[in-house]
Structure formats: C-alpha cells, structure tokens
Simulated scan of single mutants.
Amino acid sequence: MIRRFFSKFLYFSCYYGMISFSQPKSMIEKSKINVNWKVIGHAQQKLYLESAFFGNRLTHSYLFSGPPHVGKTALALDFARLLNCENGNLCGKCLACVNPVEIFSELIVIDKDTEIKIDEIRSLKRDLALKPLSGQKKVAIIANAENLNRESANSLLKFLEEPQKDNFFILTTAAVGFLPQTIVSRVQKINFSPNSKQETEKHLNSLDISKAITKQVLELAPNKIGLANILSKNIEELERWRQQDMELDDLFSQSVFERMQYTSQISKLETQQIVNIFKTWLILSESRLRQTKQKDMKAQTDFIKALNTALMHFKSNLNKRLVLDNFVLSF
C-alpha cells in the first residue's frame, strides 16, 4: 500500500516538477563573472546555463520543463539576452539587454495558450534564416510547446535535427508528457521546481499593492511568482481565479450527479474556454497538493490525473461532452 502510494506521488512529482533533479555536478561550475539575472529564484538552473555559456558548452536546443508560471519563459528571455549581451553578463546597458522583446531583432517568440500551427513554425524558420543584425545569436523561444500540433511538431523536429550555427531554440512546457518523444530526445532538458512561498511573498512585498491583495494572491499562487505577478496587477483576473478556486471547492464536495449537472452547463462553452478552466484548476490543484495532508493526497492526485487525461482528450479533438462525462467519473 505504502509502496503504491509513494509510486503515485513520485510520478506526479516528476511530471509536475515538484521534485527537481539537479544537473550533474561536473557540469555546474560557478562563473567568476556575475550575471545580472532578472528572474527570481532557480539558482541551480541559472548556474547550469552560466556554466554552459562561459564554458563554451552550449547546445542549440533547450527544453525548460516544470510547473506553469514559475519563471521558465522569463528565464528563457534572460538567457536569450545573455547570448547576445555585448558584455556577456546581462549588463543592462547594451541593445540586447535594454530593447523590448517586440523590437529585439535577434529574438523570435511564440507564446500562446492555443494550438501552435505549422504556419507559425514556417514563419519562425524564415526569420531564423536571416543573419543576426546587431547581436551574435538568433534565439527562438516557443512557450507552452505542448500546444504544438502534429504537423507543427514534425516541422520543428526537422529544424532541431539540423540547426544552423548561430541559431538557438528554447522550448518551455508545463506538460512534457504531451510533447512528442522525438522532440524531447533532441533537446537539453532542464527541470524547474515551484518557487518558494518566501520568494513569492518577497516579490509581492516589493510591489506597490495593498496587504489585502498580497494575502489573496499568496493564497492562490504561493509557489508561482509569474502567476502572482499577473494577479497582483489585474484585479479582474484575481477575482476570476478566486471564483475558479471556489468552484473547485464546490466540485470536490458535490455528488457525481451534481458534477454531471455542472459539466452539462459548461459543455455549452467553446472547447478552448473549457480547456482554459481545466488549466486553471490544474494550476490551483498543484498548489493545493503541496499543502495537502498525506491522508488526503490520493484524492488530489486522482483529480490532477483526471484533469490531465481530459486535457489530452481535448487536444485529440474528442467529443467534449464525452470527455466531460468521463472526467467527472474519474475522481
């Protein structure tokens, strides 16, 4: 019984990034140059990238894998600037460091919550084919890479197999299990863990927001600085997340019949709207799992598994009512 429980916990911990497997110590060496990273936390990941950068051990393709909203894409942006920084330390003065993302000519970013289509990958390839203008490297960041469809993933794979000399790819994902294994096998994977509550609270205290807002944000996103940053700046979004959190409580307390009634209502929404609700529940459930007592952990892990199964079925374009009915019977 204990062995089975631990196996389940280890599976979810690895999948959602709650357990971080550090890089080999032989590959991590402290640089003598102080890099001015803007991202909070993730010291081991920064150290690994510094070691690769200053030790001339860069690979052309990276996969930043871990929970959503913990700073994966933000660190990818920092790393892209470091690759092009004139002083090699994120000096904050050269064009690579100060240019907004929108006019940073050496950087191409695909960051969306919906399906990433083949035309977007083709456009990215055309941009990468152009030589760098002011910087040294061209960097493509594909956030939420699990949203690649089959055609776009295959198109990207061909590019990853034969990268150009000055091109770098950084993929980020909160669901590495949704990515084709052919892509995962061709990138250097770096695991990310949730932020500590102390890091999140320290960041919120540095912002010009009330203590009441700080408390509400910490309750929803104690280990996700990225999400905390969004919620602290958008009261409407904060209220939406609070509403979803309350609906999550209701869902757990309802009978199967009541859950079926609820899913019957949301089945009238567009599929993408339902997917967004499920992704919100998944993020909230991850935070709850870290605070759950051992005796209640099975219910939380079963719910997370049901959410992920439903999201995978939605991605496969299965009938949404069938997916929802299967979901409520799975936890």
Rank of each mutant, 00 (worst) to 15 (best):
A129P: 00
E120K: 10
P180V: 05
A174D: 12
S123M: 10
N149F: 09
G177V: 11
N149D: 13
S185H: 12
K117D: 05
I116D: 03
L128A: 03
G177W: 14
K125W: 01
S123T: 15
V176F: 02
I170K: 01
F168Y: 12
E102Y: 10
F169E: 01
I118N: 07
R186C: 09
P180E: 06
L160N: 08
I190F: 12
L124E: 05
V109L: 15
D119L: 02
I183N: 00
K131F: 06
Q181L: 14
D166M: 08
L156T: 04
K112F: 00
L124V: 07
P132F: 07
D113P: 02
K117A: 02
S152H: 10
G135Y: 00
I103Y: 11
F169P: 04
E162H: 01
I141N: 06
N147K: 13
I142N: 04
R126I: 07
K138G: 06
I121D: 13
V184R: 14
K158N: 09
A175Q: 15
K125P: 07
G135F: 00
R150V: 15
P132L: 02
L179D: 08
S185W: 10
P180S: 05
K112S: 12
S185P: 03
K112D: 10
A140E: 05
Q164W: 00
D166R: 03
N167M: 03
D166C: 04
R126N: 12
A145F: 03
K189Y: 09
V139S: 05
S134N: 08
L157Q: 13
V184A: 10
D113H: 06
G177D: 13
I116R: 02
D111M: 09
F169Y: 08
Q136S: 09
K165S: 12
F169S: 02
P163G: 08
E151W: 01
K131T: 13
E146I: 03
N144K: 14
F159D: 15
I121N: 06
V139F: 05
Q164S: 11
T114K: 11
Q188K: 14
F168H: 15
I108K: 03
L160E: 10
Q188W: 02
E161D: 12
E161S: 08
K165M: 12
N147H: 12
N154K: 00
I183V: 11
N144F: 09
K125D: 06
D166S: 06
V139D: 04
E106S: 13
N167H: 11
L128I: 08
K112M: 12
I183G: 01
K138L: 04
R126W: 04
E161R: 07
F159M: 14
E106I: 03
A143Q: 06
N154C: 04
S134I: 11
Q136P: 00
I110N: 07
L157R: 11
K131L: 13
S155I: 00
E120R: 01
N154G: 13
A143K: 06
L148Q: 03
N144Y: 11
V187D: 03
E162M: 08
N154V: 11
L133Q: 05
A129M: 09
D113M: 09
T173Y: 06
S123Y: 03
K131C: 10
G135R: 05
A129H: 11
L148D: 00
S105N: 13
F169G: 00
V176M: 11
L179E: 09
I141M: 04
